[in-house]
Computed example of a mutant assay.
Amino acid sequence: MAKLTITSSRWEELTTLLEDEQRLRSEYPKVAEYLDMAARLTGTGDDQVDAQFDLRFVHYMTGGSAVSPNPYWDIVEPLVNGHDGRHVVNGGREEGSARLAFAQMLLQATYAYAIPAPQTIEWIGDFCDGLPIVELGAGRGYWAAQLAHAGLTVDGYDSEPPDTAANASFPEVVGQADVWHPVADLAEFATRARPAEYVLFLCWPPGWGDAMSSDALMAFEEAGGERLVYIGEPRGGKTGNDAFFDALSARWRLESVDSHFVSWWTDADVAQGWVRA
């Protein structure tokens, strides 16, 4: 397990917070909710691993960007294991655990659906080869923040920017950042000049027949776009629609796949780099 280093002053802050249940529930309701549920749910079977995960969860969820530029990764990284040639967060158990599944739900709503491991951020930078990035469906802008922190130029857009609109996937919650990077609305995206001299980034575009992914790809093609980063599940999964995958098959070529991509054990998402055929 990756070592967690906490300063004495931070230990004192956490101790004071956890001893004041009313304050914890008021300032960090999702952390309080997790701690309430965690004790009732089956964990990994290793009490020490579970306790360390709980500590990481509390430390990074309450510390935000002040304690880490990528708290999502710092919380889950120790529970990453190899399984069937993939890197998955499962705590060392093929079936994961009920406690980890509950944490997954909270973490995805707090940060992003996909996990931005540092190796994946580096892979995206290599694939973009100096081009700026435009992320559509950026959510809280968590991935955009990680890319920007790595020195990449990235603009994020969403139909419902969480800091200015109600977003069911990323609701406003006390004690959590609404956005980690500026996220503009689609009306502002529509004013961007053509041609599309940037890499289009789609991270977990909605599935179940939603046309967002295919519409975004078609507009990108019409604007002359030539490079796409797609993070999501294969055809028939939770992300993208059939028209999106049809377009990829017909007019695009898969150039790169991130072999270090980390996924939740419950998901089948991958990180792919596509170029116009």
Rank of each mutant, 00 (worst) to 15 (best):
M1D: 11
I6E: 10
R10Q: 15
E12T: 14
L14R: 00
E21R: 08
K30D: 09
K30W: 07
M37E: 12
M37P: 04
M37S: 15
Q48R: 05
A51P: 00
R56N: 11
H59L: 14
H59T: 07
Y60K: 01
N70Y: 10
I75N: 01
V80W: 11
H87I: 11
E94Q: 13
E94M: 12
E94A: 13
E95Y: 12
E95H: 15
L100V: 08
A101P: 02
F102I: 06
A103W: 06
A109Q: 10
A109W: 03
I115H: 04
A117H: 01
I121N: 07
W123A: 02
G125T: 10
D126M: 15
F127N: 01
L131T: 03
E135L: 03
A138N: 07
G139H: 04
A144D: 03
A145Y: 06
A145I: 05
Q146P: 12
A148K: 05
L152S: 10
P162L: 06
A165C: 14
A166K: 14
N167S: 13
E172M: 09
V173C: 06
V173Q: 08
W180M: 04
A187R: 01
E188V: 13
P205N: 12
A211P: 10
M212N: 09
D215M: 04
A219S: 10
D242I: 07
L254P: 09
H260K: 13
F261P: 04
W265A: 01
A268Q: 10
W274T: 06
V275F: 04
